[in-house]
Simulated assay, not measured.
Amino acid sequence: MYTRTVRLILTFVMIMAGALAGTVATAGTAHADGCYTWSRTLSQGSSGTDVTQLQIRLGGYPGYGSVLAVDGDFGPATEAALKRFQSAYGLTADGVAGPNTFNKLYALQDDDCTPIHFSYSELNDCNSTWSGGAVDAATAKSNALRSMWKLEAMRHALGDQPITVTSGFRSYACNSAVGGASNSRHLYGDAVDLGAGPHSLCTLAKQARNHGFRGILGPGYPGHDDHTHLDHRAGQYWSAPTCGI
């Protein structure tokens, strides 16, 4: 009886020890994600596809008037953007992308890699595909995805209230039908028009300056009194005179 009791006690101790060891081994590990799963910690000096994926999601945190390069190299600008992202969501702002950062990103994205508050359909409401524009379909769709992550950051900065997208990618046919400019950035998939809602058009135009948009056109600029236009043109151009921009 004594031997059996000792054996049971030892077995219980071993089970508990194993369970504890398993807990220690997995504590803080980021879960797998349907869109993309990071498999290592990233910090300054890292490079690769996983850095590129991180930069796409940090595109809305470059700082006032700046644009974060999506080049797969984790440099000072990526670290600064990561710190802003971490601070925005109450994480330790150490500029190192580890389990806590990845878990927050997983929570913010759907399985198709779009941020949870925006969708491909919102950024393409007048075309059946992503073809027919100034770039190939894959590029147009990729540009739209980057815009969505910038909008997600902007939405969070504005108190997590909805942002209304009224126009995104356009084929040449669609652009012509709505009277768009012949060189419109909508043809590239990297432009979005926003309508008023919880926030005024001026509030949207002003806030966009912090989230990586090179082009900002709003109230007071010809043809833009009823929407705020954001894009990723080559050089910075902001004009919304009514808003003081």
Rank of each mutant, 00 (worst) to 15 (best):
Q53F: 10
Q53A: 11
L54C: 02
Q55E: 15
I56H: 14
G59C: 06
Y61V: 01
P62S: 13
P62K: 13
F74L: 06
F74D: 01
P76L: 12
T78S: 08
T78L: 04
T78K: 07
E79I: 11
E79P: 02
A80C: 04
A80K: 13
A81E: 08
K83D: 13
F85H: 05
S87D: 15
A88L: 05
A88V: 04
G90V: 08
L91E: 03
P99Y: 12
P99I: 09
N100T: 12
T101Y: 13
N103K: 11
L105R: 13
Q109D: 14
Q109C: 08
D112R: 04
P115R: 01
Y120W: 14
N124W: 10
S128L: 09
T129G: 00
T129M: 10
T129E: 11
S131P: 06
S131T: 12
V135H: 09
V135R: 13
D136M: 06
A137P: 07
A137C: 08
A138L: 11
K141A: 10
K141L: 09
N143W: 12
L145D: 05
L145R: 14
R146T: 12
S147F: 05
M148I: 07
M148G: 06
K150Y: 05
K150L: 06
K150W: 05
L151F: 01
E152S: 10
M154N: 00
M154R: 00
M154V: 00
H156T: 01
P162V: 00
V165P: 08
T166N: 07
S167F: 03
R170T: 05
S171D: 00
Y172R: 11
Y172P: 02
Y172N: 09
Y172T: 08
A173T: 12
A173G: 00
N175W: 08
S176M: 06
V178N: 04
G179W: 03
S182C: 03
S182I: 05
S182F: 04
N183C: 01
N183K: 04
